[in-house]
């Protein structure tokens, strides 16, 4: 499954560690939420970067105290139609100011890229290689956005107000 990061297909530096496998002392790892919450202090002291795979039915509030020590938060789309992780992503980025990598995992297709980018995702484990290859073009499909989110894209309402001001200034 190709990983798209910074708009490009990239080798995944993180290794998924199963719940029953030993945790390596260093190197970049991704572990389950349950395992992370079991002993977050110990995991924070290990040598390499740690990321957590956070299920979409658990409040992100539980993760908030540890956000500054996490290198990756991977949110899950068990199906295309299950959109809970969009809310989790926005809360993490916009309310709790999480700045690390936020990764979309699971059923990730090109038709969700724009929504995901707007919700704050910056890394994508894309289901199909053809979709990953189409990332650059697909993610630029839209140039107009109606809703303010934390991604900084200017909304249509504000563009209109700016246009209006520049018109009145030039008169």
């Amino acid at each position: 499954m190709p990983l798209v990061k910074n708009g490009k297909i990239t080798a995944d530096a993180f290794v998924c560690v199963a719940d029953d496998a030993p945790i390596p002392a260093d190197g970049a790892i991704l572990i389950s939420a349950a395992r992370f919450l079991d002993d977050p202090e110990a995991l924070s002291r290990r040598g390499g970067p740690t990321g957590v795979i956070w299920p979409n039915n658990r409040d992100v509030d539980d993760l908030v105290p540890y956000l500054d020590r996490l290198a990756v938060v991977a949110l899950v789309f068990p199906t295309f139609r299950d959109g809970r992780a969009y809310s989790q992503a926005r809360l993490l980025r916009e309310r709790y100011a999480y700045r690390g990598e936020m990764r979309a995992t699971g059923q990730v297709l090109r038709d969700q890229f724009v929504f995901m980018l707007r919700a704050g995702f910056d890394a994508f484990e894309v289901k199909k290689a053809s979709d990953a290859e189409a990332f650059a073009s697909t993610s630029k499909r839209y140039s107009v956005f109606y809703q303010p989110t934390g991604d900084g894209r200017i909304t249509a309402l504000h563009r209109r107000m700016q246009l209006r001001h520049s018109e009145s200034a030039s008169q």
């Binding site: 139609r81 969009y86 926005r90 109606y146």
Partner: peptide, 13 residues
């Protein structure tokens, strides 16, 4: 209408 169109968080309710 504008707010709900292609909403990035609520298109998969």
């Amino acid at each position: 209408r504008q707010y709900t169109t292609l909403h990035p968080e609520f298109s998969f309710l």
